[in-house]
């Protein structure tokens, strides 16, 4: 096994460059190192202008999602030893490039903020915590692990064609609160996403499920919302208008 990996990295400054290009860098590596270690090596030693986000380097902060050898993942979790000798790295799709691998996340956050991403519920009357059974709490497992890295958003074919589509991360967040026994805005949440730019834009392509580094399974979360919206419409609680 060679101790050199060839990094082919997407480079683009829309203000200066006519079109994007790939730059090639040789990186000496050892077992245990990740793609992020390789990028850091490049920035420290070869080309200081390479732009990308990173922080925790342990797969929990969600900064460094990018497209690596054909798949979206967190650069800090992707071990170099699992990759071929040539590693091709591109930025997240469906978001505009500011520079290189550093994309404009504003549309992603705008959609996150649009879905009321906070608990709406009655305060406890005792001044202490609200009671939630272990079973009720278990419904939230996995979906609360989302690190908002936007891998799913970039992988989604529907986000590519509909700029208004809320996308898998924001919709999973809707389901996170819909599933919470403490939340009292369930019908409001369903109504909010029962439209063409909400859950019904999802065509169940499973891209988000495949790429999610935290096994959140956005596809299943969106499907749960769809099922509940339809049940609500059948029982007349939710209007069918706009669907």
């Amino acid at each position: 096994m060679s101790n050199i990996k060839t990094f082919k990295v997407f480079r683009f400054d829309p203000e200066k460059d006519k079109k994007p290009r790939f730059e090639t860098y040789k990186v000496e590596w050892k077992s245990g190192q990740t793609v992020l270690d390789g990028l850091n090596y490049i920035r420290d030693n070869i080309d200081g202008s390479l732009a990308y986000r990173s922080s925790c380097r342990e797969g929990v902060c969600g900064s460094c999602a990018m497209h690596i050898n054909g798949k979206y993942c967190l650069a800090c979790e992707q071990q170099l030893k699992e990759l071929s000798d040539t590693i091709t790295i591109r930025p997240l799709a469906n978001l505009e490039v500011i520079k290189d691998l550093f994309v404009d996340m504003a549309p992603f956050w705008k959609k996150y903020k649009a879905i009321k991403p906070y608990l709406i519920g009655k305060e406890s009357s005792t001044g202490k915590e609200r009671i939630q059974s272990q079973d009720e709490r278990a419904h939230l497992d996995k979906v609360i692990d989302c690190v908002l890295c936007a891998s799913c958003y970039a992988a989604c074919g529907m986000n590519a064609i509909d700029p208004e589509y809320l996308g898998p991360a924001a919709l999973s967040k809707v389901n996170r609160f819909f599933l919470d026994s403490r939340d009292s805005a369930k019908e409001e949440r369903l109504a909010m996403v029962a439209n063409d730019h909400g859950v019904f834009r999802c065509h169940t392509m499973f891209n988000c499920q495949i790429v999610c580094p935290k096994e959140v399974d956005p596809t299943a979360n969106i499907s749960n919302l769809k099922r509940n919206i339809i049940a609500s419409q059948m029982s007349g609680k939710l209007s069918k208008k706009g669907v």
């Binding site: 986000r53 922080s55 925790c56 342990e58 929990v60 902060c61 969600g62 900064s63 956050w109 908002l148």
Partner: peptide, 11 residues
């Protein structure tokens, strides 16, 4: 300097 959700409190 990083988005609040990326802060090290997360770890």
């Amino acid at each position: 300097k990083i988005h609040p959700i990326r802060s090290h409190s997360i770890a």
